[in-house]
Amino acid sequence: MLSYLIAILIVTGIYALLTQALNFHYGFMGLINFGHVGFFAIGAYTSALLTLSGHSIALGFVAAIVLAALSACPLGLLALRLREDYLAIVTLGFAEIVRVVIVSEDWLTRGTQGLANVPRPFASLGASGQEIAYLGLVVACNVLAAALIARLAYSPFGRLIEAIRDDETAISTLGKYPAGAKLRVFMVGAGIAGLAGALYAHYITYVVPDQFVPLVTFYVWMAMILGGVGSLPGSFIGAAILVALLEGTRFIRDLLPGVMEIQMASVRIFLIGVGLVLFVLLRPQGVMGLRVRT
């Protein structure tokens, strides 16, 4: 039982990290990013490839963050020129390009075969010790990311960002450079998503392009909306509700005799869809929402 709970918490933590990053992009800066899973994939593959070729896990994590952040750079430059309606589609396309590159470049990524046996850290601690230590790592990463975001938000940089979001033209006339600030926000969020990818790869121990589909991005958006746009604690609550919804349906099914998993799979998709619609309709500010921005 404990190990299952820990597994749930680890996955929740990974989603929370993704949600924090998205919240930083959207809730904080208003950047519409529908390509989140692309950064997640880059992080996962970077760390998996490096560690599988014998480098340390620590290096893998750092490289995952750096590479994911760098990949946001060209996308960010393009994005800055576009209106928000274009940006949603372009970022969606970016994630798809990342996935296709991973599928195609099989000399590097083994393509659709995927990368198996990605090493787990803390192997010396035994089976359950390893899980608990990994949970600790996930929590630590979340705390660090939250601290970074909070620090940025309450710094002069954060005030600049808010000012840009509210009135970009006014800020440019004051001699500030909004594009550079936006790009930095984009890269920092992408780096956090890359870190989430690395945590994911070393936990599941197997990465394959099929895991990095747009649905993951939508899940993270859903978690952000559920928790509250622009709210840091909301990121955690949203991720928790999301995983509870995804996993909880398994238990509901166990309690309902006569309902088969085959039908439950459809019910699960249906419930997620309806949940998303209801939240957008009835509580757009989320559970912990501070302001209505959607």
């Binding site: 949603a88 019910v267 998709i269 249906f270």
Partner: peptide, 22 residues
């Protein structure tokens, strides 16, 4: 705004597919 509508339409897409495949 765009994001609310896009998310709602994603929700409608999933709900439609879930109901259909049921």
């Amino acid at each position: 705004g765009l994001v609310s509508l896009l998310l709602a339409s994603i929700g409608l897409a999933l709900a439609t597919r879930g109901a259909l495949s049921f």
